[in-house]
Design a binder for these strands. Sequence first.
DNA 1: TATCGGGCGTTATAGACAGCATGTC
DNA 2: CTATAACGCCCGATA
Length: 765
Amino acid sequence: METAELERVPPGFVEYLQAQGIEELYPPQAEAVEAGVTTGENVVASVPTASGKTLIAQLGMLSAIDRGGRALYIVPLRALASEKKAEFEAFEDFGVSVGVSTGNYEASGEWLAEKDIVVATSEKVDSLVRNGAGWIEDIDCVVSDEVHLIDDASRGPTLEVTLAKLRQLNPNLQTVALSATVGNADEIADWLDAELVDSTWRPIDLKKGVHFGNALHLDDGTQRELPTRKSEKQSAAIVRDTLEDGGSSLVFVNSRRNAEVAARRLSDVVEPSLSPEEREQLESVAAEIRDVSDTETSDDLAAAVERGGAFHHAGLAAEHRSLVEDAFRDRLLKVVSATPTLAAGVNTPSRRVIVRDWRRYDGTAGGMQPLDVLEVHQMMGRAGRPGRDPYGEAVLLASNHDELDELFDRYVYAEPEPVRSKLAAEPALRTHVLATIASGFARSRDALLGFLSETLHASQTDDADQLEAVADSVIEYLERNEFIERGESASEDVELSATGLGHTVSRLYLDPMSAAEIVDGLRDAAENDRTPTPMGLYHLVARTPDMYELYLKSGDREEYTELAYERESEFLGAMPSEFEDVRFEDWLAALKTADMLEDWAEEVDEDRITERFGIGPGDVRGKVDTAEWLLNAAEQLAADLDLGVSPAIREARKRVADGIKEELLELAGVRNVGRKRARRLFDAGIETRADLREADKSVVLGALRGRRKTAETILENAGRRDPTLEDVTADQDARAAVERSDDGGSGAGEDDASADADQASLGDF
DNA sequence: TATCGGGCGTTATAGACAGCATGTC
DNA sequence: CTATAACGCCCGATA
């Protein structure tokens, strides 16, 4: 089918496609049109990655918009939300507006009501539904990207419940679900009353294979010689081979450390082949990476990037990750070794994909477990860049002949697992049962069970008993913790309604178990008439299920047991017994997490923290972010319950959020003043907002290292009458002081280089 | 005498959503 | 309970 034949899409869209050289629809896309994506029909598309899924979604959304409707695009990751937004923004040329809504970006619900297309994460959509955003009911077409993630135990139920709610809110809603190739796409289609487009067609050929010894064995039965040199690893040989062919490689490994080690080694392979121009460009990417964070991880990454390689895992800061992704997409980086983050994230195609490790440590299973077929297929699906590579190649590595056969059976020829709902589990139902009751979707036990019968879970099981049993125990839990109340029991049914506290918990998007822990801890403090300390609060939020705790390493047990006794008086709620309580281990892990948060709020340097706790900059930022979020929730719970501890919580929250000691709170409240600037000003004797308004301008300028423009903005934000700094020279004492304490910080000031000379002489001394 | 390499025991193990109200170095 | 790779340490061989 030709794009010119497309109907029911906004004028301009066909031209937009043609401008990109798209004259003809791919077979799965044509199938989707036949199935009725453009006429409002529900469609489930189960097709390989990079086979034009997005266009199917666009056809659904744009035809809905053409009919005067609006569309919602649900993604699993924030990074994908930004990627999709950027992609859809091209539609603004023909009058289709786009907005994003994720936790950290563009929260305002009303503003989104104006947009034709809204991109959001599943949790955000769930939250919008809970908070009664009116415009959600006006959605005519919802797209669920990566719908197979319903299978994920921790986040899948949210997507499942959210889709069920959207469909209940608007019975005429068109649902377009995009899935990787899975074992049971037909079941998903049945659940959503959708037509199924099930295809294995790809625009570029994907060859899958296994490398063993000196040969690459491919799934079409052919073999290619690919020798490993002496003392060279298989992955190095394959990367070298790809390089000689002018392509890039993506290597999937099973741990962060393996990713870092592999990047170092594979950079050795890549480095000699770099051109001078490439070296120069890589050098500048490396500089940007070092700018993101001053940590060992950051330095190691920059060192690899300079040599044409990189690693990629969740210990990296988000900016690190996008720098690596962009440089790899631009073909500047020739090899990236990554943990599975990259397989699920933004689009990073590569000529060759090497799945080096196919087993991963899993503590709950007690050792190494093979990866799911679906996961390996997702990794392999990254092979082959449309329009750039003639084909893609995905390779597993075997170390012996038996493994060669095993890998072919297990992954190359294997069907992916079916998607199974994980809804019938207490943690998932705890939060969704409360939300369903609080937002009025169900006002009784029967209504609740009725709603649950519309989920994928119900369509996948014959007897509803299990779900019902879990739901009942969750109802009991929620009632015991005063989140819901039972009302009249009319005949067999029981009325259910949320308490004020329950509404707050649902609105804050907290796991009820986290809320219960927080409420208990805060009540304990209030009853004993104690003002909680920051450490007490950090520990309180660190031990909730919403915080992913740091892992206890060997030796940590002793260290943190000691710390626990040392600071026993600060903890909110009873400390479990060191000898009798199995929860002690978890409680200690939370203490380690709290200790890290306290370090951050005590202005300990990022690189000291990452070194001390054995984590990356991405972990620090992630935990700080979560703590900030949970402390905000705690503050609102405290206010709701009138516990009188809100000011202490607010202070602790601000301190982790900005990473500052108490004395800097006021300064950091000024716009454009963060952790570092506040410290510099304070050390120069400017301790308050009033000081900022009255202090000697040259001292302010000196403390801010002679950055005139920054200093002016800050003075203005502090409310200074006459913020101009013309004719003011930086106070050299103040300046020298900050540069000394910055420990050789990189900067020359904007206006003169003489400060560099000063610094050098100080350094020599 | 300094350096290298093998053998062996020890150690550690992927990921990342949400509230609220706007801005770090 | 299941694995694997990297690393630190010790020892002995080597230039």
